[in-house]
């Protein structure tokens, strides 16, 4: 039997989170890329409203060039919004004070090629003013975690794509961040690496961290994300809990066991009376791939409309 404290905790978790528990908030965030002369080139993001709660794994999905990376860069202060606001931990995204609690894995690992793995992590550790002993321990821990112990003394320019990716991940976690932003975390990783990455993300969640990730690999997103947003040409098309989004609401599936013939007949009668045909009694699940393709096609056919569902 769970004690009263545990019950309280469960209650707290299920109740809608208080405002302080919102880690990321965007308010009609928009971004227009301009060229040197200030002329408008691309409207990469159009009035995005998002909330990401503490302890959540949030997925950003969308076809190439839909504005996923732009969103992440805005949230990191690498870009400045054209209009709207990006708030992280209730502060402006450009605030340096935030950065202590943030980890970021860029689309490609942008690291200094002339450093080796240890030096790389050491450098980033120093940027957090970590004391030497803690830094050393943390570096070894991370190198073990990403399985690069065998290559830790080699310069990064000799690394394969997946290896660079791994060291990039280690770099993002050096400060044991509260909020981790992963831009396509599984690209370049082998199946084992992919599996490990997903386990890692779930592990981070278990430790109460918040993860914002974007990816094309829908299976990955489906496996780990609590909620997702789907972007298309800079517009938000879909937002909600993964389990809700993937259930087909207008179909009911009933499957039962141990019913008597009479009972079955009764149910059939009920269904027939309502003009339906019983297949199985449950809400079937579609795949995320199907949902994704539907939304993208739908957006192509009717631009500017937002799909009507919400979490």
């Amino acid at each position: 039997m769970p004690g009263p404290a545990a019950a309280e905790q469960t209650a707290a978790r299920t109740a809608s989170p208080p405002v302080a528990d919102i880690v990321i908030e965007t308010r009609s965030l928009s971004k227009v890329y301009r060229d040197f002369w200030g002329r408008q080139k691309v409207r990469a993001l159009k009035a995005l409203d998002l909330h990401v709660k503490r302890g959540e794994i949030f997925g950003l999905l969308g076809p190439n060039g839909s504005g996923k990376s732009t969103t992440i860069k805005l949230l990191l202060g690498l870009l400045f919004p054209t209009s709207g606001q990006a708030l992280v931990f209730d502060r402006d995204a450009t605030d340096v004070e935030n950065k202590d609690k943030i980890g970021y894995l860029p689309e490609e690992s942008y690291l200094y090629k002339f450093l080796n793995a240890e030096e790389t992590l050491d450098f980033y550790g120093r940027l957090f003013n970590m004391p030497a002993d803690r830094r050393k321990a943390r570096i070894q821990e991370l190198i073990d975690m990403v399985d690069l112990n065998w290559a830790k003394r080699r310069q990064l320019k000799e690394y394969s794509k997946g290896m660079t990716r791994r060291i990039g991940l280690a770099q993002a976690l050096i400060n044991d961040p509260e909020l981790i932003m992963l831009d396509e975390p599984t690209t370049g990783l082998d199946p084992i690496g992919t599996r490990q990455m997903k386990d890692l993300i779930l592990d981070l969640k278990a430790r109460g961290k918040t993860v914002l990730m974007c990816s094309h690999l829908l299976a990955d997103v489906q496996d780990v994300c609590d909620r997702i947003a789907i972007l298309h040409q800079g517009e938000l098309k879909e937002l909600g809990r993964v389990d809700m989004l993937l259930s087909v609401q207008d179909v009911t599936q009933v499957r039962a066991k141990g019913l008597s013939k009479e009972a079955e007949a009764e149910i059939r009668a009920v269904i027939e009376r309502h003009g339906g045909e019983l297949l199985a009694m449950e809400n079937p699940r579609t795949t995320l791939e199907e949902l994704f393709l539907n939304i993208v096609q739908d957006a192509g056919a009717r631009p500017g409309r937002r799909a009507a569902r919400d979490a």
Binding site: L76, G77, L78, Y104, Y124, N175
Partner: peptide
């Protein structure tokens, strides 16, 4: 490479 530096404190 500035991305990974500027996103640190």
């Amino acid at each position: 490479t500035m991305y990974t530096v500027a996103t640190k404190p």
